[in-house]
Simulated scan of single mutants.
Amino acid sequence: MGQGDERGPYANEMRPYAAVFVARVTARNRLPLDYSVASLRVVDFMVDGLRKGGADRKRMSGTLLALGAYVGEVLVRRAGAVWVDFDAEQRAYFGQSVGVRMPDGRVWNPLGKVFNRFELGGPEDSLQLFYLTLHGRARGTAGVTS
């Protein structure tokens, strides 16, 4: 990923980054990463497996970033979101350089959500629930952004 500075990835890199990750993972493991909402449950299981396997965040950061790109791309393809580069204030708040803007104007942090799932792993950190909450089909944690 072109990271010309320490800022992190750029919004225009996220779609191809997710596509390369999906091609690599599905070729080896035949995982159903088809950009569907249901596939986010697979991402939950993948992140849980990494955590339970004892991997540390630093060593897994590339994989977690790729999973975050995939989650964001599901939001783009299924919920009408667009990738955006965060401004300095948003980068400080979210701890990431990119996120997605939903059609209603709200900005969300799918990369951070994946890292949270890895670190915390509670049911409230489900990536499928994250999608459903953002898309308005589930209630309870609306407004939680990372």
Score class of each variant (00 low, 15 high):
Ser97Leu: 06
Gln96Asn: 13
Pro110His: 12
Gln128Ser: 09
Thr133His: 14
Met102Asp: 03
Leu132Gln: 15
Val107Pro: 02
Gln96His: 10
Gln96Ile: 00
Val107Phe: 08
Asn116Cys: 10
Gln128Pro: 02
Val114Ala: 00
Asp104Gln: 07
Pro103Trp: 10
Val107Asn: 04
Asn116Asp: 14
Met102Tyr: 08
Trp108His: 13
Glu124Met: 12
Thr133Met: 14
Asn109Leu: 01
Gln128Gly: 06
Arg106Asn: 11
Asn109Met: 03
Phe118Cys: 00
Gly105Gln: 07
Ser97Glu: 04
Asp104Glu: 08
Met102Glu: 06
Leu132Cys: 15
Leu132Asp: 15
Gly99Asn: 01
Phe130His: 09
Glu124Val: 10
Gly112His: 03
Gln128Asp: 11
Val107Gly: 07
Pro110Ile: 09
Pro103Ile: 08
Arg106Trp: 12
Ser97Asn: 06
Tyr131Phe: 15
Gln96Tyr: 02
Gly112Met: 04
Leu111Cys: 08
Ser126Asn: 01
Gly121Phe: 06
Gly105Thr: 05
Gly99Tyr: 11
Gly105Asp: 04
Gly122Asp: 02
Pro123Val: 09
Gly105Ile: 03
Gln128Ile: 11
Gly122Tyr: 05
Phe118Lys: 01
Gly112Glu: 05
Lys113Cys: 08
Gly112Thr: 02
Pro110Gln: 08
Val100Asp: 11
Asn116Arg: 15
Arg117His: 04
Leu120His: 14
Ser126Lys: 07
Thr133Leu: 14
Pro110Cys: 07
Arg101Tyr: 03
Asp125Thr: 09
Val98Asn: 01
Glu119Asn: 13
Phe130Ile: 05
Leu132Ile: 08
Gly121Lys: 04
Arg106Glu: 14
Thr133Ala: 13
Arg101Phe: 02
Ser97Trp: 02
Gly99Arg: 06
Arg117Lys: 15
Val107His: 01
Pro123Leu: 12
Arg106Tyr: 13
Trp108Glu: 14
Asn109Ile: 02
Pro110Trp: 09
Gln96Pro: 00
Met102Ser: 04
Arg117Cys: 00
Val100Met: 11
Leu127Lys: 02
Arg106Lys: 15
Pro103Leu: 12
Lys113Gly: 04
Val100Ala: 14
Leu127Met: 06
Leu120Arg: 13
Lys113Ala: 15
Gly122Thr: 13
Asp125Ile: 02
Leu129Arg: 13
